[in-house]
Design a binder for these strands. Sequence first.
RNA 1: GGAGAGGUGGUAGAGUGGUUGAAUACACCAGUCUUGAAAACUGGCAUGCCUUCGCGGGCAUCGUGGGUUCGAAUCCCACCCUCUCCGCCA
Length: 432
Amino acid sequence: MIDIKLLEKKAEGGPSYLDEYRQSLLNRGSSTEILDQIVELNKRRKELITQAEQAKSRQNKVSAEIAQLKRNQQDASSLIAEMGQLAAEVKNMEASAGKADEEVQYLLLTIPNKPQADVPVGKSADDNKVEKAVGTPTKFGFPAKEHGDLGEKLGILDFERAGKVTGARFTFLKGAGARLERALIQFMMDMHSMKHGYTEMIPPFIVNSTSLTGTGNFPKFKEDVFRLEGFDYYLIPTAEVPVTNYYNNEILNESDLPKKFCAYSPCFRSEAGSHGRDTKGLIRQHQFNKVELMVFTHPSQSHELHEQLTTHAEKILEALELPYRRMLLCTGDMGFGSARTYDLEVWLPGQSQYREISSCSNFEDFQARRANIRFRPANGKPQFLHTLNGSGLAVGRTLVAILENFQREDGSVGIPKALQPYMGGLTEIRPS
RNA sequence: GGAGAGGUGGUAGAGUGGUUGAAUACACCAGUCUUGAAAACUGGCAUGCCUUCGCGGGCAUCGUGGGUUCGAAUCCCACCCUCUCCGCCA
């Protein structure tokens, strides 16, 4: 959520915030009418509030007089009669002021964050900027297979039966496949908690709608999450939701910042609107495991810590010897709440392309304002902190990357050295 | 699921219809004292919104949402959460 007060500030010299924000909406490829709508509605909201408050002020004043009269055992019946009328009026005025307030609030919740100034302007993923590439794309002297084929032949992935048991976009991991997934989770959590200074967390996998509004998933992207019938409960699309809301409505001590968490959770996504995309294999499932990095930071440190967090995710890829590149997303490809996002893309020889395996974003105060998470500066009013998060990494896609990058001509798959201790010393997966 | 207790400021904890935004303590900040610190003493110390160039003024907030009343932290209703006992359960 953006600060509505900034929209009203007059420009001094440079472009006003309103103009800047209008431009940033255009850069994202969204329409800007909503801004004028908000400004207009807000004007009305203020008028109504002023009106209602004046009436209430009078009401309070007279009530005090009545109290005084009663204390002196004098007659107050005429004042009380008058107030009966005013009370009804106040109720109406409050109702319309409240409604206007809700309208403004709702509109504010539906507009995206403003990208940082140096984020490249662009329309689609094609306009993202390659920041760096690490490792060289794996090449084989034989035709590379896709992970789905490899996994089924090895007997470690079973899409077929998952379709029977649940439906499309689900999988059974089996034998060494299940073990590999488990090893990856353990490996990632260990690295982040022991080497990178994050406190580990296993959050609730179900959250309420307030939490989803706090992170920015609601109200705009309701259709992307699974709802539990009969409850205001939702399966989390990412651990970002419960972990960000861990501190909602709280004021943290400035000296306690930054707070760094790494969280394991399964993630559930309805994938509404992606019918026909990545229908084969593990790339786009309704359920997948992820280790998430999450930082609550002082605004002055958020940029630096965002770089650092991204590096922490990269360390996992490097330890697993997986070739990847870091992309700075352009305005048109960024997520709704983000001010700056790096995607890490891992090389998949089976598909001969890089695929997203991590997304690291700086939300600045966008989520903090929605979720009301503040810190108290040494000598001052509480202010919104900044939130950062990134995948460290998407576990399912990491498994994909290992299968494809460590495959051999005979269909067996090697295990990266760093992971072997987590696999009980297993060095390769062969058909069982 | 049944019975009971409770949710008040950063924390603990008073307050059962009328100057209660809320006693008190702790924490925190500033000052005095001190070589410095501690202690002691003095003062300050909620958040959001509306209004004002500013000083300031106003409104709201005692789990959430409704209701009663001229007036609600206080009374009524619903919901949420926490705790205790019983039942059930990994």
